[in-house]
Amino acid sequence: MSVKDLIRFDNFSFKYNSRNDKVLEDINLNIKKNEITVLAGPTGCGKSTLLRAIVGLIPNMYEGEYTGEVTVDGIRIRDAEIKEIAKRVGFVFQNPENQIFMFSVERDIAFGLENLSLEQEIIKNRIEETMKTLNITHLAKKAPHELSDGQKQRTALAGVLAMEPKILILDEPTSLLDPKTATEFMELMNKLCKEREMSIIIVEHRLDLVLKYADRLIVLSNGKVISNDTPENVFDYKKEVIPELSVPFSTKLYRELAKNSMKFSKPVTGVEEMIKEVKK
C-alpha cells in the first residue's frame, strides 16, 4: 500500500440484509492525501453505501454481507473501534438540520469533542478556532432555528471540522444553497484542503459548481466504479460518459467541438480553460 493512500477499497462488496442484490460490487479504489475527490453517479448507484463504508456506519450500524477490505488511514474499518474512526473521518450529511443536536452553535460544535472526552480548555480552543475558520464566531450563542440555511450548513461543518479529521466527507453540501453561497462554500473547502492538509470527498450532482476544485472524479454506476481519474481524463472526448451525469457546459462544449475535429491542448473542465482554448 502506497503511503499516500489515505483510503483504500480492496475487492469490496456489500449487500444489505434488507435487500436482495449487492449495492456495491467488487470496488477497488484508492484516495490520496490532500486531494479533493468528487464522487458522482445517478441515484441508486451506491454512493451513500460507499460513504457509509468509509465512516464505519457499515458494518457498525447497517448489517449485511461484507466482503473485501476498506482501509482508512491504516486502520481496517471492519474491526476498528468507532472512536478510532471518528477521530479520523468527519461526515457532513446532506441535511444540516438533522446534524445539529444542541441548542446553540457553540454547544453543538462541542458535541463531538465532548464525546472524545477532551479537556474543557482544548474544547474551548477548538471551538474558537473552528468558528474563526468558518466565519461564524458571531453565531456562537445562536439557536439552530435562528440560523439561515447557509449558516446551518456551516454549523454542521463546524461540528465535524472541530474534531480535526484527516478526511472530510460531504454529501451533496450545496444542493440546498443558492449558487453564490454554494460557490463560497466550495472556495472554503478548497482553502481547507490546502491549509489543513485534509482529504475531502464530495458527493455532488451539480458538477458545474464543484469540478473546478476537484483533483479527482470518481463515477459510480450500478454499484461499480466506472471512472476514477482526473476530471480531464474522465471527460476526454474519446471516452464515453454516462448520460445521467450532469456534465458542466464547458465540458460538453469541448467534447462536442473536439469530436468535430477542433484541436484542444487538453480536455476542458472549466470556463477559463475553454476561453483560453478558443482564444488560442
Binding site: A86, F91, F111, N115, L116
Partner: peptide, 26 residues
C-alpha cells in the same frame, strides 16, 4: 427518516464512545 439521519450523524460524531464525556461548560 429524520431520526435515522440523526442517528447516523450522532454515531459519526462519536456519540457513546466515551462513558464520561466532558463538557464545554461546567
Amino acid at each position: 427518516i429524520r431520526s435515522g439521519e440523526l442517528a447516523e450523524a450522532m454515531e459519526s460524531r462519536g456519540y457513546g464512545i466515551s462513558k464520561n464525556p466532558t463538557s464545554l461548560y461546567s
